[in-house]
Amino acid sequence: MAKISNRDRILESGVGTMFRKGYVGSSVRDIADEAGVPLGSFTNHFRSKETFALQVVDRYFASIEQVIGQTLADPARSPIERLRAYLDAISDLMAADDWRLGCLLGNFGIETAGSSELLRTRLVEIFAQWKQPFAAAMRDASACGEIAPGLDAEDLAEFLLAGWQGAIMRMKVDRSPEPLQRFRRVVDQTVLARPPMTPEG
């Protein structure tokens, strides 16, 4: 078995450190200590905490893309089943952390958008990429009659992703699944409500 490098060890541990403590609350020493490596090892591999955080963001989004691949992008499910499976999977991840941590990307967006143009720009790119599987599911749902026709898939995708992120933020504050459950109830009753059948002729 290949030995894990200090760089990979720092990155793997750093995701958890920055998730728990936030970007501002995580010092380079915190990151090195939790990875079990000398402080100099961090500076050998990363130019700054900001550039390190960029790689943390990418590493975290890669884990989200795995969830997307198993749910939102799963061709074996109907479009609405894909969306519900994604929301179920993310809810399960939130429950595993006792509703305390939220979404690292949403956390970073709130914390760093006004202080790091490098991170803000990367988050803009990630959210644009993240929106696309939602839009694809909404286009497919409209095409097969699972949602009302005429709704713009890009607008729906933006609404779903932004609304879900807002619900996750409230979940983190409340330390309760209720904001997620409320979001899903409203989406089920509106966006995902099957259009009424029209009489023939």
Rank of each mutant, 00 (worst) to 15 (best):
H45E: 09
E200D: 14
G201S: 14
M94H: 12
R84L: 12
R7Y: 04
A85H: 04
L151M: 15
R185L: 12
A157G: 04
E12N: 14
E50V: 09
M171L: 11
R182H: 06
A95H: 08
D140A: 15
A96C: 03
L104N: 02
I64L: 14
D140N: 12
V191M: 06
K49R: 11
R170L: 14
G25P: 12
Q70K: 14
G22Q: 10
P195D: 08
L93H: 08
A141Q: 10
S26K: 03
V37W: 02
S41V: 10
A35L: 04
A193K: 15
F183S: 02
A89P: 07
A32K: 03
G145C: 13
I31L: 03
L104S: 00
L72R: 06
V124E: 14
Q165N: 14
E125Q: 14
E200R: 13
D155H: 12
D174T: 06
T51M: 10
I168A: 09
A73W: 07
A32I: 06
A136H: 11
S5C: 09
T112A: 09
C103M: 11
G40S: 08
I31T: 07
Q181D: 14
D30R: 03
F159Q: 12
S27Q: 02
E158P: 01
V67W: 01
A73Q: 12
R7A: 06
L104Q: 01
W99M: 07
P79L: 05
A73F: 08
D97P: 01
D140S: 13
E65Y: 01
D88Q: 12
E12H: 13
V191E: 10
A76R: 15
V37N: 00
L101Q: 13
S48N: 07
D155V: 15
V57M: 12
G114S: 10
G109Q: 10
L83E: 04
L156P: 09
A85Q: 05
S5F: 05
L72F: 01
E81M: 09
I90L: 01
S176F: 02
R182V: 14
R77C: 04
K172Y: 03
L104A: 05
S41L: 02
L192S: 02
L105W: 01
D97K: 11
Y23V: 08
T43K: 06
Q181V: 11
S27P: 09
A167Y: 02
R175E: 15
F127E: 09
V124F: 12
G163A: 04
A157K: 03
P38V: 05
T112V: 15
V186W: 06
G69H: 08
T121F: 02
A148Y: 09
R139E: 15
L11H: 01
A128C: 07
Y86K: 01
V15E: 01
F19Q: 11
D33C: 00
K3Y: 07
Q165F: 02
